[in-house]
Design a protein around this nucleic acid. Structure first.
Length: 570
RNA sequence: UGGGCCGUCGCCAAGCGGUAAGGCCCCGGAUUUUGAUUCCGGUAUACCCAGGUUCGAAUCCUGGCGGCCCAGCCA
């Protein structure tokens, strides 16, 4: 599944893996894992991690990558998310084979190891309230204070812990804590919590447990139990590595395996948010239609928008893996999609903003079938049939009564233009609504010698797209724009939040857009290039009567650049 | 502020003491029945700053500056 880039990117993590392999470390094995918590849908940031972990496994003969649900917080997790995550990883193109795990698979073992820690004097049951624990922890600059429970004997701790498990205490009454150092400059080492009492039904283990282990305790042990060699995570866990190592060191006699945790920077995309907390807010506020709204940076949203797995994998490969802030421009992602779709998407014509054109010298009842290639550079993609008729629609943007400048090469009153895959027409007259003065129709004439042939003695430089008025179908077209108006949505005034920067125009719905008939056979999820406009993906909400197309991304538009420079010279 | 991490072109990113890869963007130009694609060509005397070591520093040393993360019984 590696992308065939000219220069294969070898990052610092792959370098470490290669060195370990060369040194014969880990018995020549490399085992990674992708450990999502099922508390939301996967997004583009997860794709980076998935491509890294599964990518490394694929690149090495002994490589294996596990998919493990980090499901230690039943209050926030749901089965629905598990199914969505499984589907998204598969869709992205990766296969965990039989290596599907849940941290909850290890709850018995985890409990047993917690008792070992207690017996070794490395953990104790603390009776402080949540608020007290916070106060005792100290601050960034001041050391914390020892809990009164800190020096209880292992016997007392063991008894209390067993009673915690047995359900003798209410939620929050006690926690199990590691006994490390309340004065550590690293706050994560100030006797962190290992287990809490929480009477919540777990999506995998039901009501078997009323105590649940915390991430720091669970993660490293799960890694060790699965024989993970390289435990890759994002930078915010750098401060947790001493704890990861501390736990595995204390349990060395039990586990006999100590993976290496390596951190890399998480992905940040501009003009969007990549944080499950914020994404779930957008879903709950109904700012978007759901996790798979095409404006969402979730994998399901991108899929519905028209993104291909290849384009996302290529994107992940291009941004690389480092520890420096990975603030990537959204246009970079868009470029990856264009690049992929340029090769793959069949071409078609659709009119977003229709203007009727009547070709006066075209026979009233005549309809010509024109065969056009589905892809101009790739004959293997086949052909489709276009229908030429007396009345057609063109895009309003492709006509101007008077050319604004000499560079304008679309249709102008009194001038000629080529209809894509069809004839050259000349605009003879502009019909306006007598009241509004709005242009309602163009009267044109066509040159019947110009089908698949250039006209004699003159050059027609412009080509515009069109759809037959009588034979064309109608569709709903949804135009998407960035979800936020600021590159960094978190840049807000005092007291505000990221939703203040929502883009009110992130979705525009166009109805009754003329589309060429061949498009009606499209299947949901199929992507086309609407020539001269952009790439569009058929939405699953489409019906027979109302096909819906989502704009994945526009075509690059150098004319927009020129025309927006307005009166500026050159 | 204590601790951890980061700072090379607008963005991503190579580089690991020998005189700044590549990709995206951008700017020219060619071809084009998509102002798309494709194809040519151009773009950091410069590596956060200041000193120092060295024949030679983005790479080593010292000191600054800037940014990100941590005070959940979340992950």
């Amino acid at each position: 599944m590696t992308e065939n880039e000219p220069s294969k990117p070898i990052d610092f993590i792959r370098t470490i893996v290669a060195q370990d392999l060369a040194a014969g470390k880990w018995d020549g094995k490399v085992t990674t894992r992708f450990p999502p918590e099922p508390n939301g849908y996967l997004h583009i940031g997860h794709a980076k991690s998935i491509c890294l972990n599964f990518g490394i496994a694929l690149e090495n003969p002994t490589g294996v990558c596990h998919l493990r649900f980090d499901d230690t917080n039943p209050e926030k997790e749901e089965e629905e998310y598990i199914q969505a995550i499984l589907e998204d990883v598969k869709w992205l193109g990766f296969d965990w084979k039989e290596k599907l795990f849940y941290a909850s698979n290890y709850f018995d073992k985890l409990y047993e190891l917690a008792e070992v820690l207690i017996q070794q004097g490395d953990a104790y049951v603390c009776g402080l309230s949540a608020e007290e624990v916070r106060t005792y922890r100290g601050t960034l600059t001041e050391p914390g204070k020892n809990s009164p429970s800190r020096d209880q004997s292992p016997q007392v701790n063991l008894d209390l812990f067993r009673r915690m498990r047995a359900g003798e205490f209410p939620d929050g009454r006690y926690i199990l804590r590691a006994k490390i150092d309340m004065a550590s400059p690293n706050i994560n080492m100030r006797d962190p919590a290992l287990y809490r009492i929480r009477r919540a039904t777990h999506h995998q283990t039901g009501d078997k447990w009323c105590i649940y282990p915390i991430y720091d305790f669970t993660h490293g042990i799960s890694d060790a139990l699965e024989g993970i060699t390289h435990s890759l995570c994002t930078l915010e866990f750098e401060d947790h590595r001493p704890l990861y190592d501390w736990i595995l060191d204390r349990l060395e006699s039990q586990l006999k395996h100590h993976p290496q945790q390596i951190e890399f920077s998480r992905l940040a995309l501009d003009y969007t948010v990549v944080s499950k907390r914020k994404l779930i807010t957008l879903v709950n506020n109904q700012t978007v239609s759901g996790w798979d709204d095409p404006r969402m940076p979730t994998l399901s949203g991108l899929r519905r928008r028209g993104y291909t797995p290849e384009s996302i994998r290529h994107f992940c490969s291009r941004i690389g893996i480092t520890k420096s802030p990975n603030n990537v421009e959204i246009s970079f992602l868009e470029g990856c999609l264009r690049e992929d779709l340029e090769k793959k998407a069949k071409r078609a014509m659709a009119i977003l903003n229709p203007l009727k054109v009547v070709i006066e010298n075209y026979p009233e009842d005549q309809v010509e079938e024109i065969t056009a290639p589905n892809h101009p550079q790739d004959p293997d993609q086949g052909e489709r049939t276009l229908f030429m008729s007396r009345e057609i629609y063109i895009d309003r943007e492709d006509f101007m009564e008077v050319a604004p400048n000499k560079k304008f090469k679309r249709l102008v009153l009194g001038q000629e233009v080529r209809l894509r895959n069809s004839y050259v027409i000349r605009c003879e007259e502009v019909i306006r609504d007598p009241h509004s003065a709005e242009i309602t129709q163009l009267r044109c004439r066509y040159d019947e010698t110009t089908l698949n042939a250039n006209p004699e003695g003159r050059k027609v430089k412009g080509v515009i797209h069109w759809v037959s008025a009588s034979k064309g179908h109608k569709a709903e077209i949804r135009l998407y724009d960035r979800l936020f108006t600021k590159a960094n949505p978190d840049e807000v005034d005092e007291g505000g939040d990221f939703t203040d920067n929502l883009n009110p125009d992130s979705l525009k719905v166009l109805k009754g857009c003329p589309i060429e008939p061949s498009l009606s056979q499209a299947k949901p999820g199929e992507t086309f290039q609407f020539e001269r406009v952009g790439y569009f993906c058929k939405d699953p909400d489409s019906t027979e009567e109302n096909p819906i197309f989502n704009r994945a991304v526009t075509l690059r538009d150098s004319w927009a650049k020129i025309s927006s420079q307005g009166g500026r010279r050159r």
